[in-house]
Amino acid sequence: MDGSNRNAAGDTPTMSPQPADLWVDDQDWIEGDIPRRPWIAPGYALRKALTVIVGPPGGMKSSLSLAWAVSLALGKPHGRFDPQTTAPVVIYNVEDDENEQRRRLSAVLRQFDAMPADIKGRVIRTGPKKVGTLVVRTDDGIVAETTAFANLKRIVTENKARLVIIDPLVELHNVDENDNTAIRAVLAELRAFAVAEDVAIIVMHHTRKGAAANAGDPEIGRGASAIIGAARVILTLGPMTEDDAKAFGLPTDRKARSNYVRLDDGKANYSGVDDAAWFEKILYTLDNGETVPAAVPWQPPSAKMASLEDLAALARAIENGHPSGEPWSPKLSGEGRAIRPLLEEHGFVGAAAQKAVMAKLAADYSVVEAKFKTRVSRNKVIGLRIGCKPDAEWLNDA
């Protein structure tokens, strides 16, 4: 639209009346004058918008959110959560009481080398004495805020908070969580709150029962798909899988893996989708003698880079063949003639490092996969060779 009409003579433009309930823009602009997006922490928390973190119960969502609260209050980064300023934070938690919040925050503060006095008046904790519902739908279908929501807004305003953390979503309303229309109305109230108070809101949300831990998949969250549409940022928090552990060369048993969680971008409307951010569950002993976990940023081990000596030694071993007298298998497993134990013996631990060195051997030493007949069963199987080495009954690939 051009924002104008012709008069009766057809030659003099007159401005159209602007609608009262819509904004209209048909002008040109200067790119440098466009305001930057009001990120509190780029990719994680944006003022006037909702962020939803989806994860299983007990998956360290609360611990992570408390670390972000302290991060913003102190102006210190926590992993990739990099606050652009310092600001007060309000935490509304329906599940943890005052003392539990203090326990968790005590553990969090240790990784910042900080004390409770350092966040006094900066991290404000609140929660319901009874029911924690913030938004209700009445019998006649009207969606309205509760007294608790009004009080929460007052606390945010009085403390000039810029981040509000709400935990968890399922406790905030009385509607059917699978009803898209109802859930959309509930989240619209939260979004309107974010806009009115110029705050970023982070909401903790549980995964569906039996949902697979698909990293970065927002569909694993409970309830209606309207949740995905209402949020500007969706992050998934999940446990380390066996495949993850193998890739990093770590123990694959459940107990060992339970010490690590991964955070992935599920939806990032205003930022790029990044690689997973990892956190380790570290136990801290408080002054009262209790042990409390905290989510601490963790960097996965780097894949070993192959030196010329490494490649030459591995090439000789492949030429010599497996100790059984047959060629090595290219499988990166622990079975039979698999090459993985040989690679691990030379320091290449984890799938990433092992795939990289195998590609290097193929490029620099012409290590290839080929069929041969086993000496005992005479089966046709795959082995590794350089030229015709090791000695085996190699078959024509054709």
Rank of each mutant, 00 (worst) to 15 (best):
L286C: 15
A294M: 01
D265M: 08
L263Q: 04
A317C: 11
A352K: 01
K281C: 04
W298Q: 04
G272Y: 10
P341V: 14
T285N: 13
A353S: 14
E335N: 11
L361P: 01
A338T: 04
A295L: 09
R254G: 06
A313Y: 00
R340A: 15
S302Y: 01
R337H: 05
A352D: 03
W298G: 03
R257G: 06
G347S: 09
H322F: 06
P301T: 02
D275Y: 08
T291K: 13
L263Y: 06
E309T: 13
A338H: 07
K360W: 01
S258P: 00
M305I: 14
N269T: 14
L314E: 01
K255V: 13
F348R: 04
S258M: 02
A313M: 05
D310P: 07
A315W: 02
A256W: 14
A352Q: 02
R257V: 08
K255C: 02
S302P: 05
L314N: 04
D287V: 12
E345R: 15
G334Y: 11
A306S: 14
A313G: 08
Q354R: 05
V349P: 00
A306V: 06
W278E: 08
A352L: 04
G321Q: 08
V273M: 08
S307Y: 09
V292L: 01
L311Q: 07
T291Q: 13
E280H: 09
